[in-house]
Amino acid sequence: MTKDVIALTPKMPDTWTVMAGLGAAGPDAELTAAADDAVIQLCGTGGRPLVSVEAPVLVQVPGEAQRLLGDQVPAPDVPFWWTEARATTSAPEAEHLAGSVCGRLTLLLGGATWPPEAATTDVVPPTTDLTALPAPGRPTVDVLTDSAAVVLHDRPVLALTTWLSDVLRTTTQSALSLQIVTPPHVRLSAPARTTLARNPNRWIIQDPTDGYYDGLTGTVLRWQDGTFAPARTADGQAAMAEAFTTITPTDERQLIVAFRTEQPADEQLVLGRSLEAAWRRLTGAPPTGWGTAEPVNLPWSTRQLTDLAR
């Protein structure tokens, strides 16, 4: 299991600033790199990672921090840098350590930390013996069986981050289903919803009354043979969670538009023009950004989108 702490800074965390953040573990901390050196890991006993610090991402799209983290974070004006620290809950001190890494970054560079109460600048030496844990090598998940990888998630919005994309890629290569368990208040971004709607992946809501149910279909689920599977009634039918069928009136409305275009793949092809035309028609303005993961960090550009596809 992991706990996430995020530093949102107006300046890029350079090498010396990152080292100052990693100094939260004390002078004797062991460091390793992962994901082609895109992730720095603060390790405890036996080389097991306590905190994984991802490469900073430059966010140039207004409103991304509020969309994914809520209005409680006073994010800097765009562009700003988004740096994530993931702490394992296998060690009690790891979350405090992740908060200190991010707290030091914001102390030196300005900005804000999410969640706000996590920020600190304490020195948190690793003390927990982690030698009994499996050796690192796969993205961190909470439960790993022969058929499923289960991740517990408690951010306001479940987004298709680089880390989650890495978990998804690994589980797909290992022929496992990715099952993400969240509290009822968590919402899905559109990319995450599309990903989890594909069989055999699941979004699972843990409800205090109904237990576990599928967040997209409402089917009641039970842990069976190493995976979450539908709970059957006496006549063999899938049961529906009452929390899923109970509708609370709201003034909010959403418009979902889905369309598909087919065009000849020639040298003059520019991707994204149809999307931009529809977007302008509906909103009066072009899309604000695009990216290969969330947070969406790049200003909208049909040229860059086309270059990526080529």
Rank of each mutant, 00 (worst) to 15 (best):
G215S: 11
L269V: 15
P56N: 00
A285Y: 06
Q304G: 03
L97C: 10
W16H: 12
A258Y: 02
T83N: 06
A65M: 02
R222C: 11
Q254Y: 10
P264R: 12
L176F: 02
E262K: 08
V59Q: 06
W279M: 08
L107R: 00
D142M: 10
A34C: 01
T219F: 09
A229L: 07
D146P: 05
V18K: 11
T15C: 05
T217M: 10
W300R: 08
T17V: 15
C102H: 00
Q206A: 09
A7F: 01
A35D: 14
L255I: 02
R280A: 12
R260Y: 01
A278I: 13
L31M: 04
P191E: 09
R280E: 11
L188E: 01
W290Q: 06
L221T: 07
P295T: 07
T120K: 13
L158V: 05
P184E: 15
D146I: 04
Q66L: 10
V151R: 05
L58H: 11
L221N: 06
R303F: 12
D251R: 15
G103E: 13
A75G: 10
T2C: 11
N201K: 02
T182A: 14
V59P: 04
P184W: 02
R86F: 11
V157M: 06
L160W: 13
G99F: 03
S90G: 14
T219K: 03
L305M: 15
G63A: 12
L216R: 00
D77H: 11
A192W: 05
Q66Y: 06
R86W: 04
P287M: 07
P74V: 15
P230D: 05
R260E: 06
D14M: 00
R193L: 13
L298H: 09
R260M: 05
D37L: 05
A309P: 00
G284E: 10
P264W: 01
E84R: 14
R310T: 14
S52M: 07
T106S: 08
T121Q: 14
Q60K: 09
